[in-house]
Every structure is written in C-alpha cells, then in structure tokens.
Simulated assay, not measured.
Amino acid sequence: MSLGDTHGYNFSYLIKSSRDLAAAIDSLLHYDTLVADIGTAKFSHNTEVATICWTPNQQCSEQVVLRNMTAWVAVVRHLLDPHLAPSCLHLEHSFTQQQLQQLSDWFGCDVKGGMTVNKIDFPHDYLQFKFSSDNPLMHHALVQLSQEQLADIQAVQLVSQRVLNILMSKQDL
C-alpha cells in the first residue's frame, strides 16, 4: 500500500470509519485500486466461513502477496482484537516447512503454500464485529470522496486507452 498521496490516507480512514468488518471489506473491494492496483480481491461467505481471495497481478512477487495478506490481518487485529486469527491461510507460492511454521505462528492458523489461490478464511461471525472507530458521517464523506477519485482515475484510464488505440491503429497503416 503506497501512502505517498492522499488516496492512501483517505482509504485508511475509510476502513477505520466503517461500522464493522463486513463494511470494511466492502470498502476494500470497491476502492482498493485507489491505493494500489496490484491485484483483484473477491469476497465470499456462507453461514460459517468468510473468505477473501486475492489474485495478484503477474508482476507481483511473493513478498507483495505476503505484505497484503499480513496487512489485512494486522489491520483487523488493530481495529478489533489483537488476538483474532484467520481459520486458514492459503498461498500460491511454495515455502519451506520452517517458513510455513513462522507464518503459521504469526497468523495463528494453519498456513499452506503451493496452493492454487491466495486466500484467507475466517469465521463468519467476525463480519459482525463492530469497530470502535465507527464514524458514520466520516465514512459517508470518505465514500463520496473515494467514488469521485475512482471516477477520475477511470476517466484518465479511458483517455489513455483511447490514445493508445489511436497510436496502435496508426502503426497498422
């Protein structure tokens, strides 16, 4: 997460001002590209387990994957309870048994490497945990600001893509 600009700070406050973990995950999924467009997160849940799957962009190293996964867990622990732990963590990269044990010790759950997906499973009940930093007015204002910033980024990307298409068509002549 690059905090070199205001997007990162706004995003951090957006997460902290959420009412509960479910709202924070919703914000994460909608506005993560404002901070770093390095992958795609998907969220699913049933009555017992909630899962965040993260597919990094091709150029991402295993350190980037570990940084994202540990950052998500660290933020939840900071905002809710330092002892919370996922149910299970799957990582696409392979690790030695010693590395897996170190990761397992930090995450507080079973960690498996060499899997087909990067994912964090956690108890569904965690979604209802309330944030002590809940601030509905701030959250609403930051959602509006994030929507505007995302629209600006998408507009620039659209213009960039049009220019690229024009340049590519000129090469074909």
Rank of each mutant, 00 (worst) to 15 (best):
L91G: 10
S12H: 06
L29E: 07
M115W: 01
R19Y: 06
P56I: 04
S2D: 15
Q59W: 11
D26V: 00
W54F: 11
Q154L: 14
S18E: 04
K112D: 02
P136Y: 03
F129Y: 11
H78T: 11
V65T: 15
V76W: 08
D121A: 08
Y13M: 13
F107Y: 14
L164R: 03
Q58M: 10
P56D: 05
S17C: 04
Q59G: 15
K16M: 09
S132D: 12
V111R: 00
G8T: 06
L100T: 12
S169R: 11
R67S: 15
Q98V: 15
S17Q: 01
H93C: 13
V76L: 11
L164Q: 06
I120K: 03
V73K: 01
S87P: 02
D26G: 04
L14M: 06
F129R: 10
L21E: 04
P56R: 02
A50C: 09
G108S: 07
N68H: 08
S44V: 08
G4T: 07
P82G: 10
A41G: 05
H90F: 08
E62T: 15
L80V: 15
L79V: 15
V73D: 05
A41H: 00
E148K: 04
N135A: 14
S169Y: 03
D5W: 02
V65E: 12
C53P: 00
A23T: 13
L79P: 13
K119W: 00
H90T: 14
V35G: 08
P82I: 09
L164Y: 01
Q63I: 10
S94N: 13
I153G: 02
L158H: 05
V75D: 07
Q157L: 11
V49D: 07
T33E: 15
H93Q: 14
Q58T: 13
